[in-house]
């Protein structure tokens, strides 16, 4: 029983890593008043660019850097459309997601699968500090020990964070106070996109070591839900990520039990998504959206 519990906690941490990273990125973006529905696409793009670069150069580090660059570029396109032009954020974000997915599927076909092959790399291995719980990928340690405190400090302790929250709550007042609204939103969107890119790169470069169509499979949408579930606070966001991952790791264990042998495993795979919706139904009422959520800002 202890073994199973340890196994569930261990795989929960692995499952939670990309979700937490992407949700942190979405949190930073939304705090500036911008909803980035491109999260799924940015993860997809960085997952592909990361592994494609790693396969071509033989270096996982080069793959990670390339993934981050792809995330920043995608964020820049999104920021130009939503901040500079003021395009509808739902449309721009979904458009970015569809663009990244179709672009990567096309590139994957050209580069790797045209002759029936598949891109593969030797992924990062878990670092073992004793026991299954402390045998994790370095990015998992980095996420919970560095990224989480960093985003907390960034948003609530740093000067930039104050600016981000100001333009997210009341861009007119922030503008009057001398804060560059567009510049701050660009910064928040690009920082957010970098975290989303880390999430995507983690999936191909550490978790699976290969790329298949539909590899992100809704993880970006889960990250969006976690931000709302977390009411734009880091603590609650992490609780949401933990709950989702526990359900997910739990269903992986359920599948091994003989009494669940007859349940199609796809139904169990759907459980975590349903858990998120239930979580939102319980905890997503009257949530404090950022004041300028979805509103483009133009000085008149």
């Amino acid at each position: 029983m202890i073994d199973v519990t340890e196994e569930i906690i261990s795989s929960s941490l692995r499952i939670a890593t990309p979700l937490a990273l992407a949700a942190l990125g979405e949190l930073v973006t939304e705090k500036s008043g911008v909803l980035n529905l491109g999260v799924e696409g940015i993860m997809y793009g960085s997952a592909f660019v990361g592994i494609a670069t790693a396969a071509q150069t033989g270096s996982l580090t080069a793959g990670l850097v390339a993934a981050l660059v792809s995330g920043a570029l995608a964020g820049l396109i999104f920021a130009f459309a939503t901040v500079t032009l003021g395009v509808n954020q739902h449309v721009a974000g979904l458009g970015l997601t569809l663009l990244m997915i179709s672009l990567c599927n096309t590139a994957n076909r050209i580069m790797f699968t045209a002759d029936g092959g598949q891109v593969r790399v030797d992924p990062w291995q878990p670092l073992n500090f004793g026991g299954p719980i402390f045998s994790q990928y370095w990015l998992t340690y980095a996420t919970f020990l560095i990224a989480v405190p960093f985003v907390w400090w960034l948003l609530w302790k740093s000067g930039l964070g104050l600016k981000i929250r100001a333009v997210g709550e009341n861009p007119e007042a922030a503008d009057v106070a001398g804060i560059g609204v567009a510049k701050t939103r660009y910064t928040a969107i690009i920082i957010g996109s970098l975290f989303m890119a880390l999430a995507g790169a983690f999936i191909t470069l550490a978790f699976v070591g290969t790329f298949t169509v539909n590899i992100i499979n809704g993880r970006g949408w889960v990250a969006l839900a976690l931000v709302i579930f977390g009411r734009w606070t880091i603590g609650r966001l992490l609780i949401g990520a933990a709950l989702f991952s526990l359900v997910n790791a739990g269903q992986l264990q359920l599948r091994l039990l003989p009494s669940f042998a007859d349940v199609p495993f796809e139904i169990l795979l759907a459980l975590p998504f349903l858990a998120v919706i239930v979580g939102l139904a319980i905890s997503g009422r009257n949530v404090p959206y950022p004041g300028a959520y979805l509103k483009p800002y133009k000085r008149l």
């Binding site: 909803l35 949408w221 969006l224 709302i228 919706i277 939102l280 139904a281 997503g284 009422r285």
Partner: peptide
């Protein structure tokens, strides 16, 4: 309940 439909329809 006023829960954002974007996320739930996507999920």
């Amino acid at each position: 309940l006023g829960i954002d439909e974007v996320v739930t329809t996507l999920l």
